[in-house]
């Protein structure tokens, strides 16, 4: 009888050891979920897509040779994230450019709220394979933008499409989305529901 009991005890020790090992696996997999975050950035960098390629610093000025034989249409769009109470638009909808020439166009943004706000614009270029060939030399997206209550202003974007743009691409879209980057402590929080029903 005590033999059987010893067996039972050995078995329940084995069970606990097994549960312990499997719990380690659980913790490792929880960590793996977080490890996917840097892995994703590496993947994006290798493949040249995703946020890893969004450049929030000015491209280096270079002497590109303008290719007058080619014309590329560049489109500009503006959008606001979620319920951000701003006005935001591109002053120019489209532009015909020759690769290698630098051009300037203008965006307009206005803070509609009666409080100071900070916005961060995130650019995006499509098609994806054109992203590496549209260089921003001057852009309001390089820094966070402070807008006082009700303030509006025009913001220039200087850009160049380089001549290495793949042959078959004749239309490139540059899209900006403004995100609310106002720090939580900057002023008392506004009730989102009243803000949106106004």
């Amino acid at each position: 009888m005590s033999d059987e009991h010893r067996q039972q005890e050995a078995r329940s020790r084995g069970n606990l050891r097994m549960a312990g090992k499997l719990s380690v696996l659980v913790v490792v997999m929880f960590g793996f979920g977080y490890a996917l975050v840097p892995l994703y950035d590496v993947f994006c960098e290798i493949t040249g897509i995703g946020p890893g390629t969004v450049d929030l610093v000015a491209a280096e000025e270079q002497e590109w040779v303008a290719d007058e034989s080619r014309t590329v249409t560049v489109e500009f769009t503006a959008s606001l994230n979620q319920r951000m109470p701003w006005e935001f638009r591109a002053e120019t909808r489209t532009m015909e450019v020759h690769p290698g020439e630098s051009h300037v166009m203008t965006y307009y943004a206005r803070n509609l709220r009666e409080q100071d706000m900070i916005g961060q614009a995130i650019p995006s270029v499509s098609p994806a394979r054109a992203a590496a060939h549209l260089h921003k030399l001057e852009c309001f997206c390089f820094v966070e933008q402070l807008f006082e209550a009700g303030q509006g202003r025009y913001m220039p974007v200087r850009f160049v499409v380089d001549p290495d743009l793949p042959e078959h691409v004749d239309r490139v879209t540059l899209a900006y989305t403004f995100f609310d980057a106002t720090p939580a402590g900057m002023h008392a929080p506004v009730d989102v529901d009243t803000a949106s029903t106004r």
Partner: peptide, 14 residues
């Protein structure tokens, strides 16, 4: 389950 439920837990925690 042991391999992927923790990944979901991580995602919703994020």
């Amino acid at each position: 389950l042991i391999a992927v439920m923790p990944v979901l837990a991580g995602a919703v925690t994020m």
